[in-house]
């Protein structure tokens, strides 16, 4: 794991080249001008994939926590932690891009920064859970105990979170697609926007994978460095 293989390097380069193309395409390709949205519609390529990536990171983290409890392999714990860390960064970016986007389009005259949107609330709750997970880890010294306790909390959170998907949309109105009369892609969405959007989702999940594997490698190297006795 410490030295990356050829396939890993090749895949990493593909991800980076792919993301460069996505960013270029996202900013340069022509898009239809929709009233209110105008050029901010390009945020679709960046804001929405952040959310997808955070959910993917959450699943990766929960999966490795479950594997940790069944195998008690330290690497699993490192993987769960690093997936959560990178996922939290994507979550913060998704929340910030969403808040800024809504502030300067829908709420431009009202000065509202935070609205009680189900998806926004869920992202905030998810970030709180990540924060609790990191705080819990910081409070335990012994590595094995820390790994076990953190894994239990991570899985318990994974059991509770899906309720938000069910509960929140019934309580709150939403700006987000999926609500009534607000499909994810409508007829006015240009076909090229779909292509760039899907490419961006794949690209940002790829970026997550690159960052996450690099962090896991770094953690493994640090651990190995700790094992070498000082002379």
């Amino acid at each position: 794991m410490a030295t990356p293989g050829k396939t890993y390097k090749r895949l990493r380069n593909i991800v980076l080249a792919w993301l460069t193309l996505v960013v270029l395409g996202g900013f340069l390709l022509d898009i239809p001008r929709i009233n209110i949205l105008e050029h901010t519609a390009r945020n679709l390529y960046f804001h929405v994939p952040m959310w997808f990536t955070m959910m993917a990171a959450f699943f990766v983290s929960a999966w490795h926590s479950a594997r940790y409890l069944s195998s008690l392999d330290r690497v699993r714990d490192t993987r769960a932690l690093e997936a959560a860390r990178v996922g939290a960064i994507f979550g913060i970016l998704g929340l910030v891009t969403g808040i800024v986007w809504a502030r300067f389009t829908w709420y431009v005259g009202q000065g509202i920064w935070w609205n009680f949107d189900p998806k926004q609330t869920m992202a905030a709750v998810q970030l709180l859970i990540y924060g609790a997970y990191f705080t819990l880890r910081a409070s335990v010294e012994e590595p094995e105990k820390r790994a076990r306790i953190a894994a239990v909390y991570n899985l318990f959170a994974a059991a509770c979170v899906p309720f938000l998907l069910y509960v929140l949309p019934r309580q709150m109105e939403s700006l987000h697609p999926g609500a009534e009369g607000n499909p994810a892609f409508s007829d006015i969405t240009h076909p090229i926007m779909r292509v760039v959007f899907y490419a961006a989702v794949i690209g940002f999940i790829g970026l997550f994978w690159v960052l996450y594997t690099q962090r896991v490698r770094l953690a493994a190297l640090n651990e190995r460095a700790d094992d070498i006795p000082e002379s």
Binding site: V125, G131, A132
Partner: peptide
């Protein structure tokens, strides 16, 4: 800190 985020649906 641990409890409140999990209890939002409740």
């Amino acid at each position: 800190v641990l409890l409140f985020p999990l209890l939002v649906p409740l």
